[in-house]
Design a binder for these strands. Sequence first.
DNA 1: AAGTCGGGGAT
DNA 2: ATCCCAGACTT
Length: 349
Amino acid sequence: MPLKLPEYQAFSHQIIKWYRENPRDLPWRNSSDPYKIWLSEIILQQTRVAQGLPYYYAFTQAYPTVKDLALAPESEVLRLWQGLGYYSRARNLHFCAKFIWHELEGKFPTRYDELIKLKGVGSYTAAAISSFAFGEVKAVVDGNVFRVLARYFGIETDIASSKGKKEFETLANELIPADTPGEFNQAMMDFGARLCTPKNPDCTNCPIKSSCFAFQHQLVGSLPVKINKVKIKERSLNYLVIRCGTDWVWKKRGAGDIWEGLYDFPSEEISQQGGLLSEDPKPFPKKYRHLLSHQKLEAKFSEVEIPINNREKLAQWCENKGFELVAENEIEYLAKPKLIVNFLTDQGF
DNA sequence: AAGTCGGGGAT
DNA sequence: ATCCCAGACTT
């Protein structure tokens, strides 16, 4: 049963009132620079504020403007993104910066319909940028908004379905006030992040519990409904750590798999090195388990020492295989998956 | 509509 | 262990 307009206004008013008394102090707020807002939104996709904060500082310091980001090499951008995950975000970020600098005369798009055309900018991020930076009346719908709306209005639609996404976006856009859209969006997310949390929400101190459907019907623990269908595959990686003097053999990972654009080692059945190996690889004792959102990795590393007089042969082999010889003191500048960083740390790097 | 893409914190 | 985080893209 749809609520009447006055009740919508009451909800929005209460949310904003709560927000004005309980705002999070975040560095990208009170900035109307669309570049910095865009940067923060990309960093925060599927990422907690606490985890993203140090990356936001690193990026704004390294690249204060979209021009600085556009003129940086992708390798450097990925290295700065190292450890944050979902690396396509960093590649798309860099692509967009170049596009904006070279094709749009450095001028950031201002409207939702234009912003959503940018790589890596979906409905959430386009609404966030357009409302925060330009005051456009577009409601953000992130995990927080799903949760607050599902509970308050008692909506049982699966939030992972496209039907659910559409339904919640429609509702949020009916709720958002035309005079303070950005503030309402911030308020919804802060309310969900600090009070209406996934586990143990602070219903006792909730200013709208008396009209919250979930609270009144003991459904807080079962809303929102999210049908998860991620199947986790197990996968084993056998890495060869090939060294020749102070040079290491590295492989830049390609498309169609995890960690695209990042560096790790040659793996699997490199059993036929064409007589390059004088002796068998020596396995490192430790096995590494690494969890991704949809893969359970078990990695083993083996050490291969190439005699220095075979360096030319090794270099030729790398050339053929698409591997790269990297000097030991350059390794820190490669963007690497956390798994590889963990391994290197254990080796004293 | 379903599958893919990281890493970490809270419970 | 499980869930979820200021989601988006590809198939």
